[in-house]
Simulated scan of single mutants.
Amino acid sequence: MEVYLLYPMFLMVVLTFVVGFLTVKARFSSVKNGDVSAKYYRLMGGQNVPEIITKTTRNFNNQFEIPTLFYVVCTLYISFGIESFLALVFAWLFTILRIVHSYIHITYNHVMHRMLTFFAAFICVMVLWVNLLLQKI
Results as ranks from 00 to 15, higher is better:
137 I>E: 14
109 N>Q: 05
107 T>C: 12
99 I>K: 15
52 I>E: 13
50 P>T: 08
64 F>A: 02
34 G>E: 02
10 F>N: 09
64 F>S: 00
98 R>S: 07
52 I>G: 14
38 A>S: 15
63 Q>S: 00
45 G>Y: 14
20 G>M: 06
77 Y>C: 09
49 V>N: 05
72 V>T: 13
89 V>R: 13
125 V>G: 12
131 N>R: 08
65 E>L: 05
52 I>Q: 13
96 I>A: 14
8 P>M: 01
112 M>C: 04
58 R>S: 04
63 Q>M: 07
69 L>T: 01
73 V>L: 06
128 L>C: 04
128 L>S: 08
54 T>D: 14
83 E>P: 10
45 G>A: 05
28 F>K: 15
89 V>G: 06
26 A>P: 06
136 K>M: 10
81 G>Q: 10
102 S>I: 01
14 V>P: 13
70 F>C: 11
103 Y>V: 01
45 G>I: 06
101 H>R: 00
125 V>C: 08
70 F>P: 02
96 I>C: 05
44 M>D: 14
137 I>G: 05
103 Y>I: 04
123 I>Y: 06
2 E>T: 06
128 L>P: 09
4 Y>M: 09
28 F>G: 12
40 Y>V: 02
77 Y>M: 06
85 F>T: 01
72 V>K: 10
21 F>H: 12
88 L>R: 05
59 N>E: 08
111 V>T: 02
113 H>D: 06
88 L>Y: 14
135 Q>H: 10
